[in-house]
Amino acid sequence: MHCSYFDAARCRSCTLMGTPYGEQLAGKQAHCQTLLADHTALEWLEPVASQESAFRNKAKMVISGTARNPTIGILDAEAHGIDLRKCGVCSPGLRAVFPVVAAFIRTHRLTPYDVPNRSGELKHLIVTESPDGEIMLRLVLRSEQLVPRIRKHLPDLLEALPQVKVVSINLHPEHKAVLEGDREILLTEQSTLNMRVNDINLHLRPQSFFQTNSHMAAALYRQGREWVNELAPASVWDLYCGVGGFALHVANPSRTVTGIETSSEAIVSARLSSDEAGLQGMEFEAGDATAFALAARQAPDLVIVNPPRRGIGKELCGWLESSDVQHVVYSSCNAQSLARDLAALPSFTARRVRVLDMFPQTTHYEVMVLLERAG
C-alpha cells in the first residue's frame, strides 16, 4: 500500500507504509518470537493476515481550521490541522462520512477548537462503522454551547448520511491531550451500533471499546472459541471483557461464563447481546478485573484476559499463580507486556501462540497465547 499523505510527509502515523505487506507480517512474527524465545514449548501457529488497506472500522479525527474551512485529520507540530479525509487505512464507509461532516460544519458554523489559542468548540470527530455498514458518529465539544444548534440541524445530517444510526455529543471541557470526556449526550433514539461478528450480534455504545479491525476481531474471537471449546471447561472468566466479544463466543449450555469490565456502558451492551441471543449461564459485571479475582471465593477452570497495553500486572499474575485455574487464554495488543506477564506466571506453560495483524502499516499487532498449568 502507498499513501500520498505519507509520501508528502503530511502524516507518518503508519510507520511501515510502503513496506511490502509480506515483510510487515514476517517482521511482526519475528518480533514476537524474539520476545517469547524463552518459552520453548510453544507451538507457533501461522500468523493471520489482514487486508492491507481500508481495514479500519473506526476513525478518531481532530477537527481544526475554521468553520468555513475545517480540516478533519491530525495536528502538525505547531497544532495546525492536517486534513486526512482520504486516509487509505479507513474503510470506504468512514471516508464517505468525512466530507458530509465537513459540509455540516461549514453550513451550520460549528467553530473548530483552536489548540494554541484555547478557543472554539468542536474538538474531535469519532466515527465507527459496523460490519453491516451502519455508522456511529460522535462529536467531541468543549462545552454545550453548540448542542442546540447541532440538535436542531441533525435531521439534515441524517438525511445526507442515512447509514448513520447513532449520534452523540461528548463533552470534553479540559485543555489536555485526551480524546474525550466523561459525559455523553445521545442525540438519536438508537443508542447502540450493532456489530455483528461471526454469529454473534454485539452492541457498541458510544463510550465502549471495540477492536478497530472487524475482520481481525472475528478471527481473534474464533481462535479463542476454538481453544476454549477444545478444552471444554465448566467455568470461564472473561476479564477485561469489553462488550463481551470473547465471553459471548465461548458461551455454551454446559458452562458458566462471567465477564468483567470497568466500563458500565460496555457491560450494558454485553448483557443486551446475551439476552437477545437467549444465552444461558452468562453473567456480566462492571468492575476491576484484579479486584474481582482477589475477592472471588472460587476460581474458574479457565480465564480469558484481554488487557490494555500495560498487561495484567503483577497482582493479577500473582492471583493466577496461587489459584486453581488450569488454563489461560491471553490476548495481547503489546507483546512486551505479555512477555513480562508470562515471566510472572512460572506455574503455567505457554503451549500455543498466534499473531493476528490487527494493525497493518504499523509495528503493532495482536497476539494470543494459550497457557496450561504445568503438571
Rank of each mutant, 00 (worst) to 15 (best):
I150C: 02
P346D: 07
D341C: 04
Y365K: 08
L248H: 08
N201I: 13
E366T: 06
S273D: 02
L110S: 06
R351Y: 05
S235G: 06
G18E: 07
F359R: 13
S274F: 08
H2A: 04
L158S: 07
I304S: 02
M282R: 09
P20D: 13
L122I: 04
E43T: 15
T71V: 03
P162C: 01
K314T: 09
G73W: 03
I185E: 00
Q361D: 02
R354S: 09
M195W: 09
L122E: 01
Y365I: 09
E189Q: 14
C11N: 01
K152V: 04
A344R: 12
I63E: 01
I63C: 01
S191H: 14
H175T: 07
R12K: 11
W237T: 03
S143H: 09
F284A: 06
A266S: 12
V164H: 04
A218G: 01
A177R: 13
R271W: 10
Q326E: 12
R109Y: 06
D156G: 04
L158F: 08
P346W: 14
I267N: 01
M1I: 03
F359L: 11
G287S: 11
C14L: 07
R196L: 04
A291D: 11
L35G: 02
P116W: 06
R85F: 05
R354F: 11
E276D: 12
L154N: 06
R271L: 08
E321Q: 14
A251C: 06
P307Q: 11
M136E: 10
A30G: 05
E315H: 09
L239I: 01
S331E: 13
G93V: 02
R149I: 15
N69Y: 11
L338I: 03
H153E: 01
D324N: 12
L279Y: 14
L371P: 01
Q163H: 08
E144W: 12
T258A: 05
Y365V: 15
Q361Y: 00
I74D: 00
H175I: 10
H364N: 10
H80F: 10
P300Y: 01
L154E: 03
Q298H: 15
P92W: 05
N194S: 13
I312Q: 13
H153C: 05
L294G: 09
L186S: 09
E121Y: 10
S264P: 07
S269W: 08
T192L: 12
A234C: 10
D199I: 02
N194M: 12
H39T: 01
A277K: 13
L75I: 07
M17S: 07
D275V: 15
E78G: 03
K28W: 08
R151Y: 01
K86E: 12
